[in-house]
Structures are given as C-alpha cells and as structure tokens.
Nucleic acid binder design. Structure first.
Lengths: 159, 159
DNA sequence: GTAGGGTTTCCCATTATGGGAAGGTCAAGG
DNA sequence: CCTTGACCTTCCCATAATGGGAAACCCTAC
C-alpha cells in the first residue's frame, strides 16, 4: 500500500501521515527501493484509531499514550480511563469558557437595536468594562469582570 | 506613558502591544527621542477595549472591525451587531462540537471498568469505529460516525 | 519513450502568545 | 561622574496541527 492508498483507507491525509511519522506517533514506515513508504492493513488500523481519537479532540500527546496502551496487552483499563477522563475534564472547562463568552455576547447583541443608529450596548460594554459589568451584574450567566484574566489566561496557556 | 505602564493599565502584555502594532490593529505608537513607545490615556482605552474583546473570544480580525466601528461616529449598530452575532454563531458551533466529543467520551469512560484488567470499551471503540458506532447508535448525544469529517474538517479549517 | 499522476523532501503559512538574547536608555545612589 | 538595576528596543524561536506548493523523482499505461 502506498501512502495515498493508506490515506484514503484511513481518512488521514498523506501530509499528516508523514507528520505523524516525523514526530514519532507512528513508527518509521518501510520503504520500497525507490523510497516510497509502504503500509500494511495493520498500519491502516492504527491510522483509523488515530483518526477517531483526533475526532474526539484528543491531542497528539494523549493519542500517543492511548496507542501505547492499545498495543499493550498488559495495560490496565484504569490507565486508559484516566487519559479519557482527563480529556473530558479539559473539554468541560473549555465548554464552560465558550458558553460564558457566548452568553455574554448574546445578551449584548440582544440589547442592541441593530438598526441604522450608532448607539450600541455592545460597544458600550467593551468600552467601559467595569461600569458596564456593574450595570449587568443582575443578568445571569455572563462573563463577570472578576472572572476575566484567570480563566482566560488558563485557556490561552493551554491552547 | 511607557509600554510597561500602558501594559499594566490595560492588561495587555507589552509583547502583545508591539504585536498588535505590527499587524496594524493599533496605529504606530509615538516614540521618544530614544525610541521608546509612548502611550496616552486614550490609547489605554483602546487597549482595554481590545482586551475585553479578546476576553469574549473574538479574533483579532473581528476586533479590527469592531475598533473601526467603535471609532466611527457614523456607524450603524446593525454593523456592530452583525459582527457580534457572527461570533456567537461560531461559538455555538464550537460548543456543539466539543459537547458531542465530551458526551461520547464520557459515555465510553463510564462504560470502562477502570480497574487492573485490560478490557476497555474506550479502546474498543477507537479501534473499531463503525461497528462500535452501530452498537451505541441508541445512546443520545454522541458523535455519530456520519458526523465525523464534515464538522471536524470545518473546525480544523476554521481553527 | 513520453505523459500524467503519485511520491519524496523542504520550506512557508496559519493564530495569538510567550521566551529569551543582545544591546541601548534612564533614574537613583554612590 | 559612574555604576547598577530596571526598563526598553529589535530579532529569532517555539507552540499545535494542518494545509499549500515547489522541485525532483518514480511508475505505469499507451
């Protein structure tokens, strides 16, 4: 199997196949005399595994761990579960952040007339954070001023 | 005001101040004879605006638009609202994706014993996507096989 | 043998951010 | 007046995962 065929069979682009090999997620593929990479059906299985793990949003680093556990007959399911659970925790955190942003922005947009006039609560809020935050302190589910920085810096660091 | 003071007053790092200037989000700052950047209270206002917009997850490109509208006395609130609404739409899409991932992974983790034994539904699922997808077709809120690719590719393209 | 399509490697770009080096500046204290 | 430490400057590098594209090579069918 050529790289193109392995790519088609696994749903992983040829570009990524080479990349995964280069970073050690995949072992170095065998080569033909001409230097073409050669893949087996077993390799395609691994690729599909990786593809599905990526679809679940797992990072390459975590996928490396999972592939290792997958190939290890002696693994404990606890190890696998821990990796999965860590990712769920991160997803939850990210979802909370995005939801807070979404809700705040939706509230502001709802309060905006959206007509030809220049008056706009969205800009007013961005302009005068603290004051505006006080004025919408009674609204539910918004990104409060004290929240800013902390969670945000986290997200940026993690991303 | 030096860059350090503007940074402290706005919550935007000095590094980012220079970066924003380099990409044209900020006008070129005035300089002292020695070449130090100089900022005014008005500049700090703009920086705070940008900071808050970033906290709401807006991209630099959209913030450029918003800053433009903000400074434009002739703007229509409809223009501002549209930009905000576009971002809400993207946030919603991302939240849906992450939630689907989260739910699928949580279901798999819940089904995993998490003990010393190697048997693990998580790995089984990653291994045999199609079959596993069929076996959990009755479960709610999971990442269905037909969903994969489409939404995922979108996310990756957009990210 | 030649055309067309697959492959290889290498470099570049993306997004927004931080780290760090080498060197200039400024203010306070000796 | 000179030193010291804190600040500033620019420039390069790194991040995560992916795509784009060029130049050169290979293979197969006609």
């Amino acid at each position: 199997m050529n790289i193109g065929q392995a790519s088609a069979a696994s749903g992983v682009s040829a570009k990524m196949l080479r990349y995964y090999e280069s970073i050690g997620l995949l072992p170095k593929a065998a080569r033909t005399e001409a230097g073409y990479r050669v893949y087996s059906a077993k390799d395609v299985n691994t690729l599909r595994f990786i593809r599905r793990a990526r679809d679940l949003g797992l990072s390459i680093e975590r996928i490396k761990l999972l592939v290792g556990l997958w190939k290890d007959r002696e693994r404990s399911s606890a190890d696998v579960k821990r990796v999965a659970q860590e990712h769920v925790t991160e997803l939850d955190a990210r979802i909370l952040e995005l939801t807070a942003m979404r809700d705040t922005l939706q509230e502001l947009a709802d309060a905006c007339h959206g007509d030809h006039r220049p008056e706009c609560p969205i800009l007013r809020d961005l302009e005068g954070g603290a004051q505006a935050a006080a004025s919408r302190a009674d609204l539910p589910n918004h990104v409060g001023t004290p929240m800013r920085g902390a969670a945000e810096q986290q997200r940026r660091a993690g991303a």
